[in-house]
Design a protein around this nucleic acid. Structure first.
Lengths: 175, 175
DNA sequence: CATAATTAGTTTCCAATGAAACTATGTCAA
DNA sequence: TTGACATAGTTTCATTGGAAACTAATTATG
């Protein structure tokens, strides 16, 4: 339960000089904070790199927005879905899903029909055209993924994924 | 130079059923694409988690925006800088830096003086108030980082950082 | 049943961001 | 010099995305 003490001891030791307890202003910082070695900063740079590498594909080829691609991807890989299911599966918020669905529908890529079991809802499926786009795009996206990851070994990719997932397991502080 | 063949062989094999070569439309996909196991998707989820964990701190405490925090962080840890240097160090674009500087200046946290050696430019430093904010915020940000990373061991943190950095080393395709 | 509380999805509004155009200054070459 | 081009920073504009309010339909409760 106490993993990696050393790490943050090191980090905090850098900050120690400028720690201030609530009211008490103390000391000048030991020139200590370095954005470049700050984990969230590194994550942001990393993220931008990854996203940019793959978003080019659907942007250039179909002028799609990220959320449209994600929505299409979910509809293509599964059975008919409701917007709510897409929210669930994509971690996009419902407002954005609504917009993506509207746009994809305008383009004729998805079909919207009523949901018999709940009139508030809708059932979405890919149209023929939508499937064609999906089939064209998926392998290209996977290629882009492969290209992106090609500097890493298999083992490294697995490890990276594992560590990213592990980070989520932080329980929200009970207090 | 050919690292981790197995990984993408696996990935591509899933797509194989629906690969289409330029003009030729082929096959139905093997129900194959799963957004949740798509690396860029995982990265986005990961990123949101990380950013959210730390941005709370400066948002709640000083109602600062991400780019304002980053700008402050750079000014605080170093010597006087020009906006261009901040762009360089923060990987924020110059438009955003300009805005962050304007806002921080309005709040009285940074001082702007002319740059003797180039009248187009400016020299920025933290004011007394700005330093106080910096000194208050830095240890809290580091704490948030520690908190965030506390589910990982030292070794895991190092490895994660290493892998994220390694991914950048992709050379932009020559052709 | 009737009505209160929820839920699905949309619309409206606003904050954040980046691209392109713009202003002012600096640099280089004839 | 003087003009052509480059550079620092700002402004304008369009796009994106999320929060909150809204509508319509459903479920729960008395």
């Amino acid at each position: 339960m106490q993993p990696g003490k050393g790490y943050w001891e090191k980090i905090l030791s850098e900050a120690r000089g400028c720690l201030m307890v609530e009211g008490k202003t103390q000391k000048i910082p030991p020139q200590g904070f370095d954005l470049k070695s700050f984990f969230p900063y590194q994550t942001r740079v990393f993220y931008k790199h990854v996203i940019q590498a793959v978003s080019r594909v659907y942007e250039a080829r179909y002028d799609m927005k990220p959320n449209e691609w994600r929505t299409l991807a979910i509809l293509g890989s599964g059975n008919p879905s409701t917007p709510a299911e897409i929210v669930e599966l994509s971690s996009i918020d419902k407002v954005s899903v609504s917009r993506a669905v509207t746009n994809l529908s305008k383009r004729g890529w998805i079909l919207v029909r009523a949901n018999r079991s709940d009139a508030r809802s809708k059932v979405l499926t890919l149209s023929k055209a939508g499937k064609a786009v999906y089939h064209d795009l998926v392998p290209r996206m996977l290629e882009a993924e492969v290209e992106l990851l090609s500097v890493l070994t298999d083992a490294e990719v697995s490890e990276l994924k594992r560590l990213m997932e592990k980070l989520h397991s932080v329980a929200d502080k009970p207090a």
